[in-house]
Simulated scan of single mutants.
Amino acid sequence: MATSLDLEMLQWNIHIAKTPIANLPKKSGVEVYEEIGHRQLIRFLTPDQNGAFRKGSGEKHFTTPTPYPADEVIEILHLPGIDKPRLWALILDPRKIPTILGPRLVRWGFAVEYVLPDGFPQEALIESLWEVRVS
């Protein structure tokens, strides 16, 4: 239901792509913040990633505006490492992220995603610069 509601909201204003990353529209974080209704982006973590991004990251990340329960997130987002539970997540303020690509439908999944091609600065982290529990 969460994905369906997000798709309904987003499709009123924008086109949701089904395309490779290279073809996704490039936007500012402020544009994405407006597009997703002043919400945050979520970056789900594997256990070995906990603590790895507390100072930000310069690598590519995949995020979603939609919160999912831990027991469904791997299937809905079609995440790699199906044996690694996603019990924690980073909450990111898109306004603090210079470049965001998307949105697009997750390939082989059932969700909307935004790609951070250049990662995110530490200032984009919400919740005191650490992970939050996915429930």
Rank of each mutant, 00 (worst) to 15 (best):
residue 67 P to S: 11
residue 104 R to Y: 02
residue 1 M to D: 13
residue 73 V to M: 07
residue 131 E to W: 11
residue 122 Q to Y: 08
residue 80 P to Q: 13
residue 118 D to W: 04
residue 21 I to F: 05
residue 100 I to Y: 05
residue 65 P to F: 03
residue 116 L to C: 08
residue 68 Y to W: 11
residue 5 L to Q: 15
residue 102 G to S: 05
residue 120 F to W: 03
residue 36 I to Y: 03
residue 85 P to K: 13
residue 90 L to K: 00
residue 63 T to C: 12
residue 3 T to A: 11
residue 106 V to T: 15
residue 105 L to C: 04
residue 30 V to K: 10
residue 71 D to S: 14
residue 69 P to R: 07
residue 48 D to K: 09
residue 56 G to Y: 01
residue 62 F to N: 04
residue 90 L to H: 05
residue 28 S to M: 03
residue 9 M to I: 08
residue 30 V to C: 02
residue 25 P to V: 03
residue 88 W to P: 00
residue 43 R to Q: 05
residue 70 A to P: 07
residue 25 P to Y: 04
residue 135 S to V: 13
residue 29 G to R: 01
residue 6 D to C: 12
residue 110 F to L: 09
residue 45 L to F: 10
residue 68 Y to S: 03
residue 26 K to H: 08
residue 64 T to F: 03
residue 85 P to D: 12
residue 122 Q to P: 00
residue 133 R to Q: 14
residue 24 L to D: 00
residue 88 W to G: 08
residue 39 R to Y: 04
residue 97 I to H: 05
residue 58 G to Y: 15
residue 135 S to C: 12
residue 118 D to E: 14
residue 37 G to E: 05
residue 36 I to R: 01
residue 69 P to G: 08
residue 32 V to C: 09
residue 81 G to P: 05
residue 75 E to F: 11
residue 114 Y to G: 02
residue 86 R to Q: 10
residue 3 T to V: 08
residue 130 W to Q: 14
residue 29 G to F: 08
residue 130 W to H: 15
residue 118 D to A: 10
residue 110 F to W: 04
residue 42 I to C: 03
residue 109 G to A: 06
residue 44 F to V: 02
residue 118 D to R: 06
residue 5 L to T: 13
residue 79 L to S: 04
residue 67 P to C: 06
residue 111 A to D: 14
residue 36 I to K: 00
residue 27 K to H: 14
residue 28 S to R: 06
residue 24 L to T: 01
residue 23 N to P: 00
residue 69 P to T: 11
residue 120 F to I: 07
residue 126 I to G: 06
residue 72 E to Y: 06
residue 112 V to W: 02
residue 59 E to V: 15
residue 99 T to A: 04
residue 113 E to H: 07
residue 60 K to P: 00
residue 55 K to F: 12
residue 20 P to E: 14
residue 135 S to T: 09
residue 56 G to S: 01
residue 44 F to Y: 15
residue 73 V to D: 02
residue 97 I to A: 06
residue 112 V to D: 02
residue 12 W to P: 00
residue 131 E to D: 15
residue 62 F to D: 05
residue 45 L to V: 04
residue 72 E to D: 10
residue 89 A to H: 01
residue 66 T to C: 10
residue 74 I to K: 05
residue 98 P to I: 04
residue 115 V to N: 01
residue 84 K to W: 04
residue 38 H to S: 14
residue 1 M to C: 09
residue 107 R to I: 06
residue 103 P to N: 06
residue 124 A to N: 08
residue 117 P to M: 11
residue 94 P to G: 06
residue 75 E to M: 11
residue 18 K to Y: 03
residue 114 Y to M: 05
residue 58 G to V: 10
residue 38 H to G: 09
residue 39 R to Q: 10
residue 117 P to F: 08
residue 92 L to E: 02
residue 132 V to C: 13
residue 84 K to Y: 09
residue 8 E to K: 11
residue 37 G to F: 13
residue 46 T to Q: 14
residue 118 D to G: 03
residue 133 R to I: 14
residue 107 R to V: 06
residue 117 P to S: 07
residue 124 A to G: 10
residue 99 T to F: 08
residue 13 N to C: 11
residue 64 T to H: 06
residue 126 I to Q: 15
residue 68 Y to L: 13
residue 25 P to Q: 07
residue 64 T to S: 10
residue 128 S to V: 07
residue 56 G to R: 01
residue 131 E to S: 14
residue 92 L to A: 05
residue 16 I to V: 15
residue 117 P to Y: 10
residue 68 Y to E: 03
residue 82 I to E: 15
residue 96 K to G: 01
residue 19 T to P: 00
residue 133 R to P: 07
residue 60 K to I: 09
residue 69 P to L: 09
residue 36 I to F: 03
residue 64 T to K: 01
